[in-house]
Design a protein around this nucleic acid. Structure first.
Lengths: 339, 339
DNA sequence: TGTTAGCACTCAACGATGACGAGTGCTAAC
DNA sequence: GTTAGCACTCGTCATCGTTGAGTGCTAACA
């Protein structure tokens, strides 16, 4: 038995309808809503074949059919092939990004929000850790009271700051002198090296110990943060709007999984392709067997981040893929600009 | 009919049991679980009186009784009175705050997480806007490429930064010179004034226009952000664990309300007391009539922020109040330190 | 006068039952 | 190969009796 043109059309019709209605599709429904040109009985025969081939499933004998993971896979593969030719427009994406000169973290946050709003699904971005980041500049800014803001900028454009205590008599110029000195000595070194170097300086005495320790602590904190993947998520409880999660227990299980960092990262980490779609079992996780994940990747610095959505297997793949593709490309461009 | 000692004991027993089990409490249950010293029949008579007085409600005639908002009010008032004498210990709170030298926003985020984890409710913090913030320092830090990080520190210790484009030839010293000049001219002025002043400078020409515009834009953005209340929230979908929200529709309504900024702010804004408890109707919102909000306030700079939880009327008030009290006091101390 | 045992009554929850209808699979005719 | 017809399946929904927790009332008791 082979998947001929008519079977494909019927399957496609079922998938489209099911994505829209979330209810099992019967043979008559198809003749009503699509112009296949044959009677329900014929459709039934074809559907029976499609079930045999593993593309359709029957919740029970007297219900309609529901697409299987295999069906979605076929559907998405054809979709992707068809999209290659298309030139995706920027649609409504622009309105989310109209601010200028955003910092990296803001860009990611904005992108995740945009995806969640546009797809009504849960959007997640993951930035893989960069353990070997190097310091580019280091600057102390006076703060009210006897403290200062320590700002560290890395070569990949990541910025972190923290408040440290300093001696009261250090004014803007004095702080700048220290900043210059520290930058000259530390620029180009990795965050880990810096910690060791500063301990050595401190042991030799001389400079303001509090400042040195402050820098070391922030460097340590940054090194820790930077070596960990960072996550942005938005729209987690969008899934409550999907009938497949109308069972509270399921919804809770889904949300709990999203809350566990490692699980989320392993779910959402992208492959090498610009767009990757993993459907149901392909996720390799029994608890997520009726979910799908679509990922796009983007470049920032020398690295690859992942932007994606997670939701029920029944999701509007075409729209999701288009949205993710557009936004991830936009992100890559913005990051290129920032550098 | 008056609320004598025995009625109070029975009411209190009902509330305690109900908070624990979430199921209507019957007369026999009370005699089984509490040592009131009278028979179920007597309890029934008392319960009938309590219902008459408005402290108890009957979901239907053959179910047990459920405490009314009025009952919780009484319960909480007595609780607060009893707590005055107590010296609250720091319990497990410390483990959340062991990082040193946190920035304001981090402290708030940490606090909200701590509250949510400890109470298993939805925790929210609100920092009221400070429209009249003044600039304390302003500093440009070199970034890779032809851009710089602009950092603005306000007199209340709020820090914001953004990346701006500058001429390629500006090195660290040049940027510092500009920073000094700008700080000298702008320090002490409000964010709004600064925008006007910079437009004037720019019109006169001379200095690096891009820098001036960058500073103006960031000042504008900060002014906008600062004049708005800022919100931190954690544990929104904790409510899915409460049987009162086992109705998906209710859960969704609750979550939607939390997502609407203005509604959330109006719900969570605290009064002047260190701890405020608003129960059911007292919130003045029909859609939240079976929820309660407990708020604590904390000081930061000259301002008052609010830290609170929102959840079903049936919440463990004693524990919630204690937790909020401890953490809000801790926050006030930390903010005093930072300054 | 307050307390208690007894008893009739109420009503949500639960399970069984049957009608309904959407949908299937099979067969025979076209 | 397609289609009409028909028997069959099975989830959904409404109905109905049963069960049990809990109440309110009354009368007896201390």
């Amino acid at each position: 038995m082979v998947l001929d043109e008519r079977k494909l059309r019927i399957l496609s019709a079922i998938i489209d309808d099911y994505i829209e209605t979330a209810a099992p599709i019967g043979s008559r429904t198809i003749t009503r809503r699509h112009d296949i040109g044959v009677s329900p009985a014929t459709i039934r025969n074809e559907m029976s074949d499609l079930t045999e081939l593993g593309y359709l499933e029957q919740p029970h004998v007297s219900a309609g059919r529901v697409p299987s993971g295999k069906a979605y896979r076929l559907y998405v593969d054809r979709l992707m092939a068809a999209m290659e030719d298309e030139d995706p427009t920027d649609e409504e994406v622009s309105s989310y990004f109209d601010e200028k000169a955003l910092q990296m973290e803001d860009i990611v946050k904005t992108a995740v929000q945009a995806v969640s709003n546009l797809t009504h699904l849960t959007a997640v971005a993951i930035l893989p850790g960069q353990p070997a980041m190097r310091i580019a500049t280091l600057q102390l800014v006076p703060m009210p009271g006897d403290s200062a803001l320590l700002v560290i900028v890395t070569d990949s454009g990541i910025v972190r700051d923290t408040v440290i205590h300093v001696s009261r008599q250090l004014d803007m110029d004095a702080l700048y002198a220290i900043s210059r000195m520290l930058t000259e000595n530390l620029a180009g070194h990795t965050l880990r090296d810096v910690q060791v170097m500063l301990d050595a300086y401190a042991a030799r005495g001389g400079a303001d110990q509090r400042v040195l320790m402050g820098v070391r602590d922030l460097a340590a904190q940054m090194a820790k943060q930077a070596s960990e993947d960072s996550i942005a998520m938005e729209g987690a409880h969008n899934i409550l709007n999907y009938p497949e999660f109308s069972d509270l227990e399921k919804a809770r299980a889904f949300l709990s999984t999203l809350e566990i960092r490692d699980q989320l990262i392993s779910l959402m980490c992208a492959g090498e392709q610009p767009i990757s779609v993993r459907i149901g079992d392909e996720l390799g996780r029994p608890d997520m067997a009726d979910c799908s994940v679509v990922n796009a990747c983007f470049n920032y610095g020398g690295c690859r981040g992942s932007l994606g959505v997670i939701g029920p297997m029944r999701m509007p793949y075409a729209q999701v893929i288009r949205t993710l593709y557009t936004i991830s490309r936009r992100m890559t461009n913005l990051f290129a600009e920032v550098r």
